[in-house]
Design a binder for these strands. Structure first.
Length: 581
DNA sequence: GTAGGGTTAG
């Protein structure tokens, strides 16, 4: 690739591949000669186009421009294929001006040329321009449609994407993949899964590895283990190769659905592993609280000659956080830049503040924030606020709240925290004022929401939700459990609930938290002994954590809850996090 | 064999 001069002298007039095909039919030797010339031409074409493609993929603008020079010198720059590749390369290198000039100078243009232009506009973020060109195109093929669809999807304009998807005459795998990936990458996970189901119902197109790589993250986020397992079987059934992307996506799905053992199995099974694979298995172990394994994987990875990046260190630091390994965490934090050349980002500082705050070292956490080379964000301060809440350091907490509200006047957690502190200090007027201010500013608390999958369907529950058709049964299950739990000595931890309601209402509010509803639904709709798996969008509250521990003992079932930051495996009245989270 | 679809953290 770096010595394109070796290509040898070009055929006399390479841009004339069109006439070559129809000329020189006078005699056999002539025809043979022409044939040979054509073949040589194609060979050069092929070499140029694939080298240009490589430059585009590697974003290697130095070699890209060099090869453009060679192409011109050999007289190939008006060859249709080569010209298309050149334009595409320049778009992908971000050198739009070159691409436009080349496009304008084309003697002939085909669908591919126009598709390249549309794709180039999309890459530059000019979707509306792309759409204008697309609408003008007389001849369109499925590539044109898919290009437009993913152009919209990349910018989050899913409705426009979907409109085109529905409008296109013939859909192939790539069109389906583009739309599914669009949903998946814009966090519309249920839509991604729904469309995947429609794809199978349509039956005309068989999903390929790319389809699955787009659906698996959706399963991972929603905790849709049934579908994930089905995909795993589908992979072995159709003898698909477990390549890097597919293996990574599958392992991550298992890890995020609470099956760390299966994740490890997939990981071990993969013949090739890259940095992403290692990061997945390290982060996965961390989420399950298996800090030792996360660290072991880290060292194994180093032995394989992999260089850790910022994501790898996020995994390591969260592993330390969830296991309370403060000193280890500090050690890695210091070493990451010195020994591995990975500069800590805000996220890493956030992780460290979290680690220190949870361990009760609030002073040190605050010092760390003040020593940050960049501006601390709401997440970093929020981690400290969490510590203040656990260790009831109200003085520091108030100070932190001020800083948070300076950054984000709509930070709901701060208002709730402040109101609760005032209330617990008996300053009910201040508490009321705080809540009023919250309402006046239009601050909305993120509603707690839990998902559970039963019979291939993911059900969603909000706090106090009564929209489920089996609502009555769910609530009587909760009442029944409540009685048994009281007998087992459980007392609701009402101190973190809003203070403007009385004790009985507080208990009620607690008992209808979304995770409890989901668990109750799981209990009535699955057979005895089945493990219950719930995913929650926020962190599990203290009371729910206690309650679920007891429930797991009463019903003799494993209950696995994934909250915003980690996994809790409840069994026989205990939780895998050892109450440290 | 020039154009379109893909995994990890926050």
């Amino acid at each position: 690739m770096h010595r394109p001069a070796q290509l040898g002298p070009p055929p006399p007039n390479p841009s004339s591949s069109y006439y070559l095909a129809n000329s020189d039919r006078r005699s056999k030797p002539h025809r043979r000669q022409a044939h040979r010339r054509l073949r040589r031409l194609r060979q050069h074409e092929y070499t140029f186009t694939s080298v240009l493609k490589a430059c585009a993929g590697l974003t290697d603008s130095v070699n890209g421009t060099k090869i453009h020079g060679v192409v011109t010198k050999c007289g190939y720059d008006f060859n249709l294929f080569v010209r298309n590749s050149l334009i595409d390369m320049y778009f992908k290198l971000g050198l739009e001006a070159f691409a436009y000039t080349l496009f304008d100078d084309m003697p002939i243009r085909d669908v591919v040329s126009w598709n390249t232009l549309v794709s180039g506009y999309c890459l530059g973020g000019y979707v509306d321009k792309a759409r204008w060109v697309f609408d003008q195109m007389v001849e369109k093929n499925s590539v044109s449609w898919s290009t437009m669809i993913s152009g919209y999807a990349r910018l989050g304009r899913l409705e426009d994407a979907r409109w085109l998807f529905d409008a296109m005459p013939v859909r192939n795998v790539v069109s389906w993949n583009a739309m599914i990936a669009g949903y998946s990458q814009n966090e519309k996970y249920s839509d991604a899964i729904e469309l995947f189901r429609q794809m199978q119902q349509a039956g005309s197109v068989r999903p390929n590895d790319v389809t699955l790589v787009s659906v698996l993250p959706a399963c991972a986020h929603l905790g849709s283990l049934d579908l994930g397992k089905w995909i795993d079987k589908f992979i072995s059934r159709s003898r698909m190769e477990l390549g890097l992307f597919l293996g990574n996506a599958l392992a991550d799905m298992y890890a995020k659905c609470g099956c760390i053992a299966e994740a490890r199995q997939v990981f071990d099974q993969m013949r090739e592993k890259d940095l992403v694979s290692w990061s997945i298995i390290i982060t996965g172990s961390a989420m399950h609280g298996h800090a030792d394994e996360a660290l072991a994987y880290f060292y194994e990875m180093l032995e394989c000659g992999m260089k850790p990046n910022e994501i790898t260190f996020m995994g390591l630091l969260t592993a330390c956080t969830h296991a309370g390994l403060v000193d280890k965490g500090l050690e890695y934090f210091h070493v990451m830049e010195q020994d591995y050349g990975v500069t800590p980002k805000v996220e890493h500082y956030g992780c460290m503040v979290d680690l220190l705050s949870r361990a009760g070292r609030l002073e040190k956490a605050e010092d760390l924030i003040n020593s940050m080379p960049m501006k601390p964000n709401v997440i970093v301060w929020g981690a400290l606020l969490g510590g203040c809440r656990i260790y009831k350091d109200t003085e520091r907490g108030e100070r932190v709240v001020q800083r948070i509200l300076e950054l984000d006047s709509e930070h709901s957690g701060s208002y709730v925290y402040l109101a609760n502190i005032y209330a617990s200090l008996g300053r009910l007027d201040d508490a009321a004022k705080c809540r009023l201010r919250m309402r006046d500013n239009g601050v909305m608390k993120t509603p707690g929401c839990s998902w559970i999958e039963v019979d291939n369907t993911v059900y969603e529950f909000f706090m106090g939700d009564k929209s489920h058709p089996q609502s009555n049964k769910i609530y009587s299950m909760i009442r029944e459990l409540g009685l048994k739990m009281k007998l087992a000595g459980y007392k609701p931890k009402t101190d973190l609930v809003m203070h403007n309601i009385d004790e009985e209402e507080k208990e009620d509010a607690l008992s209808t938290h979304s995770e409890k509803l989901a668990i109750a639904f799981g209990l009535i709709s699955t057979s005895e002994g089945t493990t219950i798996r719930v995913v929650k969008n926020l962190r599990v509250c203290n009371d729910c954590h206690e309650a679920i521990k007891i429930i797991s003992g009463i019903v003799q079932r494993g209950i696995i809850v994934r909250d915003r930051s980690r996994f809790h495996h409840f069994n026989n009245g205990k939780c895998s996090c050892n109450d440290y989270w």
